[in-house]
Write a protein that binds this DNA or RNA. Sequence first.
DNA 1: GTATTATTTGTACTGAGTACAAGAATTAAG
DNA 2: CTTAATTCTTGTACTCAGTACAAATAATAC
Lengths: 192, 192
Amino acid sequence: MLEESAFELFLEQGYAKTSIEDITRRAGVSRNTFFNYFDLKSDVFWVEIDRALGLLPEKLALTESSLPPAHAIVEAFADCTAELGSGFVPWILTNFEAIGEPNELLSSAFSRFNSTTRVLKGFVSQRLNIPVDSLECQVIANTSVSAVAAAAVAWGKAGVSRAPLQSYLVHALAPLAEGYAHFRAIELPRTI
Amino acid sequence: MLEESAFELFLEQGYAKTSIEDITRRAGVSRNTFFNYFDLKSDVFWVEIDRALGLLPEKLALTESSLPPAHAIVEAFADCTAELGSGFVPWILTNFEAIGEPNELLSSAFSRFNSTTRVLKGFVSQRLNIPVDSLECQVIANTSVSAVAAAAVAWGKAGVSRAPLQSYLVHALAPLAEGYAHFRAIELPRTI
DNA sequence: GTATTATTTGTACTGAGTACAAGAATTAAG
DNA sequence: CTTAATTCTTGTACTCAGTACAAATAATAC
């Protein structure tokens, strides 16, 4: 499996010093085969997370329409990971300190941040009946995803006896649920 | 100015189709000169924003210690941009739809997100007297920066008759001020 | 066994980013 | 004004992620 080879080499010699050629040689395939499975080198980090995030739209759709959006978001994210099993802990969450912040990881992380906020904007827009391209939707989506990211990283860091992810999500998003309970669109003034 | 040449070319032919060689040729210098001024190609987008963000630590330090952190954050960010003049509107904020989401922009954006959250984590830790590496600090910093980013993008989009950035910041961060008013560290349970 | 389809691989390429030394321009000192 | 020192630009060469495409190989179907 390319990911396993990649993770071994990243720990042995660091992300930057590990070339795609190294990874594919370790896996016993050609360099170009890598690009049959991944668009980018850093995509190896996201296989499990992408699988979980892929479930998000349907999990959001399944939440009770009377539930406040922040609660629905917690439930949806928790359901995404629950469906992938209790042993599900993405490698990058437990190893990101070893990996550091190479630009390729930053770009692939932000790419997923953006696609996740797009999903949440649509959900919030529909649930709160406000325009999807409003500042309010963007803020709720941005802050929710960044809180989820912080919770996920903390959860990954907590070690093998960690509490369920949902505990972390609830704790991280509770203030947002409270803060956004009365968050309404306003007409920002224009200068004369 | 390298930035001006870059922005002209990005609009003429797109980010991906504009090489560093193109930019430096347009500016009348050698390709390697580019790297005397910038670490990365996409760094051209951030000159003004980096200047503003560079002021953040001192602006945060200047806020009243009795001010709730979210209010202090609004004030500090607003002061950062106010000090750089009323005409200060970073090119990327008004042109990011034209630029799209090239991986290089995503990585440089996330790099600045991370460094800004580090600044805010330190501030929140000191102001609320909680450990800087706690989930609470991370969540407050992450959500604050992502709300500021959403506000800044909306502000950039609003056109030449836009309200002051502070209006957008206040609106975006008000729910966070409310939500974090009683946000305290808790001991997340460990599994047996 | 042959034909078709799917997958891997080889080759060649672009361009961001890096390193380093040489050349040119600027500044300082005598 | 000349020389020396310092600063900055530039040329050359490189690595490696990422791309394109065709050839080779493997797998599948008949």
